[in-house]
Amino acid sequence: MPLRSPALRRAPFVSALAAALALAVAGIAYAQPQLRTFKAGAGPDELWDVTMKMEMPGMPMAMPAQVHQVCLKKNRKADDTIPRQENCTVTDSKTVGNKVIFTMDCAGREPMTVNGEVSSTPTSYEGKMRMKPKRKGEDMEVTQTFSGRKVGACTDQTEQVIAGARAQGDAAIARTCAEGLDRLNAPMFFGQGAMCASQQKQFCDKVGGVARDLREPAAHRAAVARSNVETVKQALQSCRHDYAAATAVACGKAAQTKDWAFLGTGWCDPEVRTAGPTHCRGRDYYLVDRSLIPMCNRYAFLTKGSVPAGGVAAARGSAGSGQPRAAPEPSTPDPMKQGVDAVRRLLPF
């Protein structure tokens, strides 16, 4: 049962009491600065001074009393004035005259049983609670005394404070999601509990544009440089676009336009295997035109490397992961190369 007992609703000081209780139960009362959620003096609500003191057996000195103010709504419903302490429920209560006697169970990291009583008037209250840990071996009972006194008027601003905090949180989430959109960060938009799940459509609209751009080598290179290839792949997959197909189109264009640098990125291994024998195989490395070098470096890896090509190459079905390596190509020197080699042998470096 939540902290909404009819017996407690009748007491005007319940909110202050519960606040004090919540702080005590949460174990954060004494070091934490109080969040001020009201403006004192103007009304129409009621300003109360609350004093709490905690006693623990075995403590070398008594803990000092803590005094703070709370603002209770003038025309509050009992429900509105009761703070929600999620780990505590009232399990028993009874009212005798102006006195309420109650028992609470608190769960969470510090489970405990709380027995308390409080006597009240419209302008004051005082009471006591005994908190007993439930864990085995923890038998130290803590006693808290508290009292309250109505001291004037105030304006409760809790709702505004909460609304402000919520707005700040919403703005932070909006900023984070915008960044995630910009970076094509799919996990932020998809999956259980994704922070930006409400913006999946915007995400996929953007990814659709990226998928079209990926068919052009320059845009492909830019997109991958911005977000890295795995992120781009995941984004496209999340929105049911085919990354491998888009990449294949870009690679085909790169091969047509002799964009050797693009072919050498590792995304176009089928095209490299086709172009390599013509432009790289059998040539002296240092005589290969510089513009061809990225592609020829990749060709060297594909034909002489020790590990299968992974990543996009594998995704595109090249001789990548899981497939046997092509045998290293035999050196096939042509007469011109043999002549060059003869000269090379004379070069002492």
């Binding site: 060297a300 890896f301 034909t303 002489k304 490397g305 020790s306 990543g311 050196s331």
Partner: peptide, 21 residues
């Protein structure tokens, strides 16, 4: 080395590819 430059390229690229994977 028999084919110094091409083999060096293949070795370097293989090492990076394997590390990446």
């Amino acid at each position: 080395a028999q084919d110094r430059w091409w083999d060096a390229v293949a070795m370097i690229e293989s090492a990076f590819e394997e590390t990446r994977a």
